[in-house]
Simulated assay, not measured.
Amino acid sequence: MKIEGRIFHFVAGFCFIMTVVYGVCTGLWATDGIEPVGLVALLLTGGLCLIAGTYLSFVARRVTKRPEDNDDAEVSDGAGELGFFSPGSYWPVTLAFAAAMGGLAMALWYTWTIVLAAVLLLISVGGFVFEYYLRPNKE
């Protein structure tokens, strides 16, 4: 995870440098002065990358070394179980549909569709999260 943290820190530094360059260039060559939207967008992008990189750097200190972090690792070092992935779940499809419907509804600003998409999104997230939840056995 150290590598991922470094990549995010590099991108954050690049975004901050480009923020300064963008501000100077638009201040010198634009007729209306410094363009604020692009400046803020670059600044916030750099900030978000810095947050992600800092998180990954802190987590990298606490977890054991992964095969990806070892320079002398073999392909077989990463073999084994990676986790549980649902083989036949339809909830990701419903979640994607609800999110797309919500985005389209907000773009067109149909209030009734926004409400419908929000309800569908909540149902889809609930179904996705609790798909394999089993109630405890009653004694």
Rank of each mutant, 00 (worst) to 15 (best):
L44M: 15
E35F: 03
E68M: 08
L48I: 15
R66S: 15
T31C: 02
A98L: 10
V93I: 15
L56W: 05
T111D: 12
G33P: 02
G23I: 03
D71H: 08
S57D: 12
V21L: 15
P87Y: 03
L108W: 00
L50M: 12
T54V: 09
R66N: 10
R62I: 14
A98S: 14
V75F: 05
E35K: 01
M106E: 11
G46K: 00
L95M: 01
A79E: 07
M101W: 02
T64Y: 10
F84E: 13
G33V: 02
A41I: 13
V40F: 07
L50T: 04
S57T: 12
I114K: 01
P67H: 02
S86Y: 02
G46L: 03
A96V: 11
W91C: 03
S76R: 13
W29C: 07
W29Q: 05
L28W: 04
T31Q: 08
A30R: 14
T94N: 13
T26F: 01
A41F: 11
V63P: 01
V93K: 05
D32I: 04
F85C: 03
L95N: 03
W109Y: 03
L108K: 07
F97S: 13
E81N: 12
T54L: 09
Y22M: 04
A52Y: 06
C49H: 08
L42W: 11
G38C: 09
M101V: 04
W109P: 00
A79L: 07
G78C: 02
Y90H: 12
R61W: 06
S76Q: 05
E68A: 11
R61L: 12
E81Q: 14
G53A: 14
V37S: 15
T64H: 09
S89G: 04
V115E: 04
Y22C: 03
G27W: 06
P87T: 05
A73L: 09
F85H: 08
S57I: 05
T54I: 04
P92W: 07
R66C: 07
V40C: 07
E81G: 10
A79T: 05
S76H: 11
G83P: 06
P36T: 11
L108A: 14
K65P: 00
A107L: 13
L44N: 01
S89R: 12
D32K: 09
G47I: 06
Y110P: 01
I34D: 04
V63Q: 11
K65T: 13
A52I: 06
V93Q: 14
T31A: 12
L50G: 00
T111V: 14
L44R: 05
P87Q: 01
T111I: 14
A30H: 15
L104W: 07
C49K: 00
Y90D: 10
F84Y: 05
L104M: 13
G53R: 00
S86T: 07
G38K: 06
